[in-house]
Design a protein around this nucleic acid. Structure first.
Lengths: 203, 203
DNA sequence: TCGGTTTGAAACCAAACAGTACCATTGCAT
DNA sequence: ATGCAATGGTACTGTTTGGTTTCAAACCGA
């Protein structure tokens, strides 16, 4: 029973698993899952195939790990943007500004890995969670939290909050598609302006 | 110079090219481009490989043809839904109802072929149009037409129209992602209800 | 009827793929 | 020092892929 408890005996591995996952996240993000061969992975990470298999399992398991990491990262990012934005309608505007800034950045302009990649894994391995569903749930819960803070404290309105949250999360999902479809900065800004105008009617 | 003018000499083909394209549209729609092998195509269409190549070119060209056909079909569908819906804010509501009905149908519940497939062709062949860009343009122009008819005839407002069109088209793109991500009917209806409420504020 | 042409169908091909067996190398524990 | 354990790296395998060659059958025009 060689459990991985305690100190490891034998030769220590020469690569940082976490750093490799980060590199491969970028690679999959750019190329997609099916379009990325194991040779690409070996070349990008500098880690050879047997080591990859020992550490991460087969290609599918590796990608699942990458996706899980990505989702956790994304959730943290969204939460921190919410925290930065603060409460009230003004908070939503600020959040949108932060999101727009991210959308125009290098990694943001690649859209969302979970959205683009979940299709590729659909129906592949049974027991595989649907990551685009998870991403949508994540987005909805984040937007619900954001919308809840935009109401007066002594007048919560669950129905109104969830309605606004659904609009915001659906708009953001649509933005992910827009971002990925060669939309230039001006077009993106225009969409964000329209969303700002919508949010203003919530005052 | 064997141009395809006049009557064809030789053995007539035993399959209907248009019908085959329709079948393959469904196939690609379900499985995606990369996940569909030529064997799958042969099996689904009943047409053997050399005939496919003679008729449609290689796999990539075949898929491009399928996508073009799909986009034209989609445009026609959207236009007819707009025509059925009629003018005014009420027209937008009716359009949304029609779109919801389609989204819950069998083919509608597969999302949008152009959205899910454009990723797969990205950076493959140069000179290849970006179909998700085309789809977005199509959606924006359709929504602009819909929004323009929702204003009083003697008070056109181009800025307001394009703002509403951008919201609607982004929401619909987001819906395509939602549809594809295992969302059940209740969740979809809930999003549509939120959009209806938004449109009501335009009265 | 018969020549030319295009089809359908099967076998075939080279390349790329994911995954593995093998072995020399490295380092920790004793 | 030395044996054990896990590593990195190369070479290999069986399979699947997209695409082609080959050939007999079917049809049209003259």
């Amino acid at each position: 029973m060689s459990t991985h408890t305690g100190t490891a005996a034998g030769r220590p591995r020469a690569f940082d698993a976490e750093a490799v996952l980060a590199q491969l996240t970028d690679l999959f993000w750019q190329q997609g899952y099916r379009h990325t061969s194991l040779s690409d992975i070996v070349e990008a990470s500098g880690v050879h195939k047997p080591s990859l298999y020992r550490t991460f399992g087969d290609k599918e398991q590796l990608f699942a790990t990458v996706l899980r990491r990505y989702l956790a990262e994304r959730e943290q990012h969204l939460s921190s943007m919410r925290a930065m934005a603060g409460p009230g309608i003004a908070g939503i505007h600020t959040f949108l500004d932060l999101f727009e800034e991210f959308a125009l950045s290098e990694s943001g302009s690649r859209g969302c890995l979970a959205v683009t990649a979940s299709d590729e894994l659909r129906g592949t391995a049974p027991g595989f969670e649907d990551f685009s569903l998870k991403y949508r749930e994540l987005m909805t819960s984040q937007m619900t939290a954001l919308a809840a803070l935009a109401l007066p404290e002594n007048a919560p309105d669950a129905a109104l909050t969830s309605q606004r949250a659904e609009l915001l999360s659906t708009l953001i999902l649509g933005l992910q598609v827009t971002i990925r479809s060669q939309a230039d900065a001006a077009q993106l800004r225009s969409v964000f302006a329209a969303i700002h105008a919508l949010v203003d009617t919530w005052k």
